[in-house]
Simulated scan of single mutants.
Amino acid sequence: MSASLLCHRDALTIAAHSTCPSSNWHTRIAPLILSPEMVMLNVGANKGFNLLEFAQRYSVTPSNLTHQKWYNLLVENGCKSQCCGVCRLCKARPISRQATASLKLHAFELQPANAALLRRMMTATGLPVMIHSTAVSNFTGTVYTAATVVAGSESFGLKHKQSKNDVAQPVTTIDAFLKTTGIERVHLVSIDTEGEDPLVMMGMVQALSAHRVEVVEFEYNRKWKVTMKDPRPVGPFVEWMRQLGYTCFWQGNHGALAQMSAPCFVEETRTRFGFARSNGVCAYREDVVAAFRDCQRTSSCSS
């Protein structure tokens, strides 16, 4: 198939408007990846809105467990900062249910205050989520984070060296976690770790190589340049994913996707790619990738 048929006519425009992307792509592929038990790993779960939406999509949740209700419960349970989310998710409409699967949800959260908040939220809502108060990267051991971060805060990543008023936290890899838990297949890994995202994916190279992860979504931001020690880190990353069999796409705010993997990759420049953050999604299955390519042909990924 020619590149003109594979690629969006202006992928960087989609990437430039990808700060708070639509989940229409997920609606399109849900029937393809559906199984009786749906497994999600939410790395950098923060206030849990992604967990709520996964549960709304794939299981029967109480009709009153809306995004607004989730926000209200966050406040009641001690959220102190950015409780609606940077993307104002507390105002979002509920995700339409597409299945009645059983759920196995795991939330990883570096910030102790956020992890404690999430535990209270699961008690309040009954969602079947296991909360792991740990960082995730490409190594295991110990990292550090500011001890003064209040519940709900975003944009605080891990530190490799301890400073005054920092607290030590364990760090693990997805590969190590899957080996410990015996989980064979993950339907969605959702990552938002303030610039650590590529290292999280490198820490699940065994699972990616074996195609045990159906779909992975992540956030790109300027911190990747430091994390990857590369002023232009996107190209090497998507090529690494391509060699593992995954095709990656930019997620547009209004639903359109744009393939970033070869042969569609366009080298970012300082003038066109100075975005604070953009979001991507990758998959290996031909039917899922085909659905993603269909989302390049409409402005909203509508069927």
Rank of each mutant, 00 (worst) to 15 (best):
P94F: 01
I95S: 11
T100H: 11
S102M: 11
H106T: 02
F108T: 03
E109M: 09
L110I: 05
L110K: 02
Q111W: 01
A115L: 07
M122L: 13
T123R: 14
T123G: 09
A124P: 06
G126V: 10
G126K: 08
G126M: 07
G126W: 07
L127C: 01
L127G: 00
V129P: 00
H132I: 05
V136P: 04
S137A: 15
S137F: 09
N138W: 09
T140D: 10
T140H: 07
V143I: 10
Y144R: 05
T145H: 06
T145W: 05
E154F: 06
S155I: 10
F156S: 07
F156C: 05
G157T: 06
L158E: 03
L158K: 04
Q162M: 13
K164L: 12
V167T: 15
T172D: 10
A176Q: 12
A176G: 03
A176P: 04
K179Y: 07
T181H: 10
G182M: 06
E184R: 15
E184M: 12
H187N: 12
H187S: 11
L188D: 03
V189A: 05
I191Y: 04
T193I: 03
T193L: 01
D197P: 04
P198G: 07
P198L: 06
L199A: 09
V200I: 09
V200F: 07
M202G: 00
M204C: 14
A207N: 06
A210C: 03
E214Q: 13
V215H: 05
